[in-house]
Nucleic acid binder design. Sequence first.
DNA 1: CACAGGATATACT
DNA 2: GTATATCCTGTGA
Length: 177
Amino acid sequence: MHEVAPELIGATLLVDGVGGVLVEVEAYDQEDPAAHGYRGRTPRNASMFGPAGQAYVYRSYGIHWCLNLACAEEGRAEAVLIRALEPTHGLETMRERRGLADPRLLCSGPGRLCQALGITREHDGLRLDGPPFELLRREREPELASAPRIGITRAADVEWRYVEKGSRFLSRAVPRA
DNA sequence: CACAGGATATACT
DNA sequence: GTATATCCTGTGA
């Protein structure tokens, strides 16, 4: 899972032809107190337990959707949270869904990203390598940076947040980058 | 910068 | 059943 998380940076993710290049992800595993799968399987996080390659979509704070890529085989809870991407496809559609013109605010955060790409519970459990998803291998080798994860209080010291260094489309700037 | 908004899950009474 | 916590964002100060 710590191999696939950095691999995702720079890859292109599309949903119904709308999306862009991933610039920010965070890794979670079952021993991680901050992860949903830590206390066992529930109806909400069932998709996090694999099989690898499927989407895990969950509701955050009762308002926002967040998209994860499950990367564990059946029985384990490992996932990569898609936090931000650089919009390259379907800008008009995203602007319409978000009601904003500034491309930097379209996908700079997990909740915003899901709104811009139209991701809901309907997509929970779907594979990311099949319709309506498209996952394109990255064409360039981005410069990576790692940092502590965001918005959590448990295990906040591990640097499992991977970003493209210097990207203008991150949800937050990387400290000391 | 503080804070409301509110689904889902766990911990407590 | 009630209380508390959470992988967050928009709005108003």
